[in-house]
Write a protein that binds this DNA or RNA. Structure first.
Lengths: 227, 227
DNA sequence: ACCTGAACACCGTTCAAGT
DNA sequence: ACCTGAACACCGTTCAAGT
């Protein structure tokens, strides 16, 4: 009977920032980015759209919070490795797979100003770059290059995966891209047309990691000059 | 009097795909991404929103066409250099500055499937990577890494530039970012907090080009192993 | 303090009707 | 063939009114 003023009981189904964000994540995962509206979210939470605004400022904040939860969870499982290089590959692949599973996170990460989720990734990579003993003045540069590459490649991959949605043959899909590239004007696009042939033996994850290794080689080359 | 059926005269102010795209570019440049709506565009062209749909399929196509025009124009001025490395730096800087002047182009380039504008950039970089005599199986990887980095860094820069819009002191702006990074939890974000101090002496273009050079070093390191 | 849901000020897109 | 503009089916966000 005696309820303190400071810890009032709450109905089990009371709205809260956390419940709202969780519901938003489910909606984004199951219905896609367009599936999340304040109306659909309110329906799912059995309330009106206005109620949500009591807990969250606006849609941008909602998306930032949702991506932060997903990224923080993903990074918890990743990166504890013997060598910095292995750790970087593991973080990179973790982000890659998280965005593959939650394509909307990729879009969110590229927003401005960098959402906390992005800073988390930056931080985790940066620590490993330090551990690589990269020169002090290239640590920032190296971290930015890795971060840019990881985000943009992961986004691209996730977008591809979404298009081939009814899971048609993966080979068919690559064939279609190759076909589009081959249609390009021969004088204007010689390189792209040539490279289109290589797409057939393309493995996304392997290709992604090859890029990471290329950047790591660049960092090592820079550090060679330091003492 | 005698007009042929196949080349009917047109009123000078007749609508055309080209006029629509040009007007869209002006609107995007002057009013920002949110300033372009079919209604605002129709008003500017002294017609109704429906008229535009006769010439252009939908808003995505309009944005793709607008970014293609801007990027094609920018790439025409750039990249004719003695060495492939210089050419790559020049292309990179050209894209960087184009996106700085037209921030909406950055968002468009990251769309899926890659718009023609993106393929143009990919092509130009790819040709120079070939000229670098990178190993055949790393040409694609190297081009992707460069492309990813250029687009994402340019976007970030353009977003920053837009925020500091009433042109407050640039130093103030960097100070504000540094301040935000310093507010982060000390245990969770040690690297980011440390690096925040370096932001004060940060030069965007120099930093951007340092990233390009890091990647070029990575490409060179990979090629060293080839014959 | 927290929730409700109608209302406001917009969107992109379609389409019957005009010329 | 090309243009017009009202109408449709939505948005995010606000806010008076409720509990």
């Amino acid at each position: 009977m005696a309820r303190t003023k400071h810890a009032p009981e709450r109905r089990a189904d009371a709205l809260s920032r956390e419940r709202i964000v969780d519901a938003a994540i489910e909606l984004l995962d199951h219905e896609g980015e367009d599936g999340l509206t304040f109306r659909s979210l309110a329906t799912r939470l059995a309330t009106g759209p206005g109620a949500i605004y009591w807990h969250i400022k606006n849609k941008d904040e909602l998306l930032a919070a949702a991506s932060d939860v997903v990224v923080a969870r993903a990074l918890a499982d990743v990166g504890g490795h013997a060598t910095p290089k292995k750790a970087i590959r593991s973080i990179a692949l973790g982000v890659f797979e998280t965005i593959d599973a939650h394509p909307w996170v990729g879009i969110e990460l590229a927003r401005h100003p960098p959402p906390t989720a992005m800073l988390r990734i930056f931080e985790r990579i940066g620590r490993q770059v330090q551990a690589l003993r990269a020169r002090r003045d290239t640590q920032f540069t190296a971290t930015m290059v890795l971060g840019s590459y990881i985000i943009s490649e992961s986004r691209q991959n996730a977008a591809n995966a979404r298009v081939q949605d009814p899971a048609p043959d993966r080979a068919d899909f690559l064939e279609k891209i190759a076909a589009r590239w081959k249609e390009l004007d021969a004088d204007e696009f010689p390189f792209t047309r040539e490279v289109a042939n290589q797409l057939r033996e393309h493995d996304d994850r392997a290709e992604f990691l090859a890029g990471i290794d290329l950047i790591l080689a660049g960092i090592a080359a820079g550090s060679a000059g330091s003492r």
